[in-house]
């Protein structure tokens, strides 16, 4: 505005002169994330290259961090010895059983807390009290309760998955649009029908994102679970590598765990696409 005024002032003798023009500059945009392919991959590759070069030139001492090539060699050793399948197989079995049982139980308890005033009053403080307990601290007790076989390993993962699922489920149920429930009631749907056909599908987005978290927790707890008398398992492999200070094997094992995490995350994304397609 000041500009315009100046313009007129300066040209006071000639008020009909063409007013100063300029285009409105663009100030929108930004803050919108768009998919950028290969950027993630490139960052990963560049880090690996820097790491490898650092190790080769001795800038990064072998004691501090083994080279990626050494970790890869350790991984290939694992593949060639045939132990990879044994380790992955044992871990996958524990993960699958622990995660499914924990999620299922969590779903049931979470639904109960979400729908029943008594369950909410009785159980939700209990959940808040037990959730933050580090499951690793309970390992000696788990040994006594569930034995040193598969029981205590599955139980560790189960406990880890149970609580986030409970919280996600009842959080999801709490945020279900009440008019949908009232609609169900107004058409005379039974309680069970309302839960099954309205409440749970509506809470599914929250439940699935809870599962994304609990699946990661399951992988984190794998190492803890396999502290107890595990002969095979990626967690056991990582622990042994750590105890023996075989850092190359340690990195290889950790890489397997993170691959596992990527696969699980991909599976859940697939599940979200399949079940939550209606959101888009």
């Amino acid at each position: 505005m000041a500009d315009v005024t100046n313009h007129v002032d300066k040209n006071g003798a000639n008020p009909v002169a063409a007013p100063h023009e300029r285009p409105v500059y663009f100030r929108g945009g930004g803050f919108r994330t768009e998919p950028r392919r290969f950027v993630g991959l490139a960052v990963f590759a560049i880090l690996l290259i820097i790491w490898e070069v650092g190790s080769r030139t001795g800038v990064i001492s072998e004691l501090v961090l083994p080279a990626p090539s050494q970790a890869f060699a350790a991984f290939m050793e694992l593949v060639n010895s045939g132990n990879l399948q044994k380790h992955v197989g044992a871990s996958l079995q524990r993960l699958t059983i622990g995660f499914s049982a924990g999620s299922l139980l969590g779903l049931v308890v979470g639904t109960a807390i979400g729908l029943s005033s008594y369950a909410r009053a009785g159980l939700s403080p209990l959940v808040s009290a037990i959730f933050p307990i580090p499951k690793i601290a309970l390992l000696p007790l788990f040994i006594i309760w569930f034995g040193i076989g598969e029981g205590s390993k599955v139980a560790t993962i189960l406990f880890g998955c149970f609580f986030p699922t409970v919280i996600a489920t009842y959080g999801g149920i709490d945020s279900v649009d009440r008019t949908l429930i009232r609609m169900g009631q107004s058409f005379g749907l039974s309680r069970w029908e309302i839960v099954r056909k309205i409440v749970l599908p509506a809470a599914l987005p929250a439940i699935l994102s809870g599962m994304r978290i609990s699946a990661s927790i399951a992988i984190i707890l794998l190492v803890a679970a396999e502290m107890i008398g595990a002969e095979y398992g990626i967690g056991a492999y990582v622990l042994l590598a750590g105890n023996l200070m075989s850092t190359d094997q340690l990195i290889a094992g950790v890489a397997i765990l993170s691959m596992l995490g990527l696969i699980v995350s991909w599976l859940i994304t697939r599940a979200e696409k399949a079940f939550l397609g209606w959101r888009n």
Binding site: P140, L141, I143, I144, I148, M227, I228, L240
Partner: peptide, 19 residues
Amino acid sequence: LVPLQKVGSMVAALKSGQV
């Protein structure tokens, strides 16, 4: 051989007859 990582876990397993 049963690896249990910690002496506490070893004692727990022995006391309860798991090992």
